[in-house]
Design a protein around this nucleic acid. Structure first.
Lengths: 208, 208
DNA sequence: CCTACCGATCGGTAGG
DNA sequence: CCTACCGATCGGTAGG
């Protein structure tokens, strides 16, 4: 039988996890720079020195969150792509998933996109996760192009265009740039679908 | 004859300006949250209390920078659009200018896109500047659509797609997300042109 | 994991 | 615009 944790005490629990969760909450409330070790410790119900048993310093904790977030996002994308039929649709699903993941996990998203935590020197796993995601994207584009589903643009530019579009939309949602238009997180998926459709068809009229 | 300023002294100079310039430098070096009033004062060569004669608090200084940046960006966009021939090209020039402005003025860009400084409650000019920019964009799209230059999408979605694309690209440059690909600021304009071209033509092949 | 502590830095104000 | 100051908070460590 599992002992119920005492309120605010993690003597026998998973303090590491509790600190990361507290940090996520803090990021959500105050942004990645509003996070402090002390406040995270406070919320986890431990003393201010305790976190340093689990993390070398505050950047180390943030990097763990970044990596966890990247892993979850990759898994989430893979899941959403699995049900699509062809390469183009998987590419698009990847973009839509980018936006919905961000809106559903704004704290992860913000940590993952804070430049100072993204330091590849500090942790090789970061590079690995980025490369993994990018190579799967390139594979998709290569396949789509070979099958004639997309035009013969430079794949690098296409990948970039797709990423900019969805990253930009995600950031606008997460940073509240769209709330003054009455657009909340429930609009994230339909809007992502709409803008990726435009990318697919192009602004210029087609005359069939 | 203008007296040359003594090094690090602004007794008779424009301290307000000097503080804003110092703040811009700080933002460029350490990000919008690395800025402090004291450090700005230090760099301007005055005591730590002096800035409060010119700005109520640190957010007030940041808001002034934000507004200044928005004004400059609007002027810059207008200039770059002036030489274009039709509405579609002006719309595109606006997007490209978004990216090049950001890359050339990363500190302004970062301040302008920091949610906590963007508070419309705190300064009505912020709302005004945003509306000004958005209405000119809508006018462009309306014109382009009437002339049959672009397809009959919902103008809101088109505006959003354009903004996401260029904002996303701008952020990626400014935050260094692209440096690992060997892409520096000199690639900003050509890439902005390339991705906006794809938005115009669409990913799907056209068969003329 | 706690207590107790260091040095550093900050935002902001009083009073001149 | 300066000096002098307040209270607050932080990151991190020593020693247990």
């Amino acid at each position: 039988m599992v002992e119920p944790k005492k309120k605010g005490r993690y003597h026998h629990g998973d303090l590491r996890r509790a600190l990361m969760d507290a940090a996520l909450d803090l990021v959500q409330e105050k942004g990645p720079h509003g996070f402090t070790m002390r406040e995270a410790a406070r919320r986890a119900g431990v003393s201010s020195g305790a976190p340093y048993k689990h993390f070398a310093d505050r950047d180390a904790l943030m990097r763990e969150l970044l990596i966890e977030g990247a892993e979850r996002m990759n898994a989430y994308m893979a899941e959403r792509m699995a049900s699509e039929e062809n390469a183009t649709q998987r590419f698009r699903a990847m973009g839509v998933a980018h936006v919905t993941f961000a809106v559903e996990n704004p704290a992860y998203f913000r940590v993952m996109n804070t430049p100072e935590f993204l330091d590849p020197e500090a942790d090789g796993r970061i590079v690995q996760l980025i490369e993994q995601s990018q190579s799967s994207m390139f594979d998709l584009l290569k396949e789509a192009r070979e099958k004639g589903e997309i035009a013969t643009y430079d794949p690098l530019i296409v990948a970039l265009a797709g990423q900019c579009l969805t990253y930009g939309l995600a950031r606008m949602f997460v940073d509240g740039h769209l709330s003054h238009l009455g657009l909340g997180s429930e609009h994230a998926e339909p809007l992502a679908i709409a803008v990726t459709e435009i990318l697919g068809l192009g602004l210029e009229p087609r005359d069939p």
